[in-house]
Design a protein around this nucleic acid. Structure first.
Length: 212
DNA sequence: GTATGGATGGACT
DNA sequence: GTCCATCCATACC
């Protein structure tokens, strides 16, 4: 059987590198989420890097807990957390074992299985907002805490696979401050996106929640 | 088009 | 008790 080059699975070694190298390199790659009803393909268009134990924006900043334990484990696995009482967010663990780094998948374009994704997100109005935003992305792909720690590089049979995809025009890759990260963590331009892509969520500066 | 605030629950101090 | 890497409906321009 002939496999198109862009459908080649990423080797696990891809994730065994510094997270700031991996994050922009993930743009344009294709995450295949295999559900019981079939596969959904997501072309990644926006990510954020969370760099190890010294990054104040990272869940791992204050050390290992039950929630973030998989960030301290082997790269190439998923880290799924629950937030705002309703939503899940999907991350990929990066770097050597023991360096709790990861990439948050913030947005992407559904390139196959859009009917399945739409069934998971019936409020979506158009294809480009099916996975526009980290919680929408996780919802569209039917990802929850049950998938925390799953292998993202399984050759077959697993819930996730990542393909090489088609790289974006290097001139279209942008970076800037991370959404929703304040304090010292806001100084780093560790959010990466494909400029002009309709699935990239609008930038919002960090604003502390108002008191009531 | 932008602005606002409610929904909702677990992690952490 | 407070914070949170959010989304969506609604109100208003």
């Amino acid at each position: 059987m002939i496999t198109a080059p862009e459908r080649t699975p990423l080797a696990r070694a891809f994730f065994d590198r510094p997270v700031l190298e991996i994050a922009p390199d993930l743009l344009g790659r294709v995450l295949v989420r295999t559900t019981g009803d079939g596969p959904i393909d997501l072309r990644i268009t926006e990510v954020e890097a969370y760099d190890g134990p010294n990054d104040p924006g990272s869940h791992a900043y204050r050390g290992r807990t039950d929630r973030n334990a998989v960030m301290f484990g082997p790269p190439g696995h998923t880290y799924v957390y629950f937030t705002y009482g309703m939503w899940h967010c999907l991350n990929l663990v990066c770097g050597p074992v023991g360096t709790p780094s990861g990439v948050l998948l913030r947005a992407g374009m559904i390139t196959a299985g859009a009917d399945l994704a739409r069934a998971h997100r019936p409020t979506s109005r158009k294809d480009s907002d099916l996975a526009q935003g980290p919680a929408r992305l996780a919802t569209a792909l039917s990802v929850d805490r049950d998938l925390d720690g799953a292998d993202a590089c399984s050759a077959g049979g697993g819930p996730f696979r990542i393909l090489t995809g088609t790289p974006p025009d290097p001139a279209a890759i942008r970076s800037g401050p991370r959404t929703g990260v304040g304090g010292e963590g806001a100084a780093h331009p560790w959010r990466y996106w494909i400029d002009g892509d309709p699935t990239v969520s609008p930038y919002r500066a960090h604003a502390p929640r108002k008191r009531r």
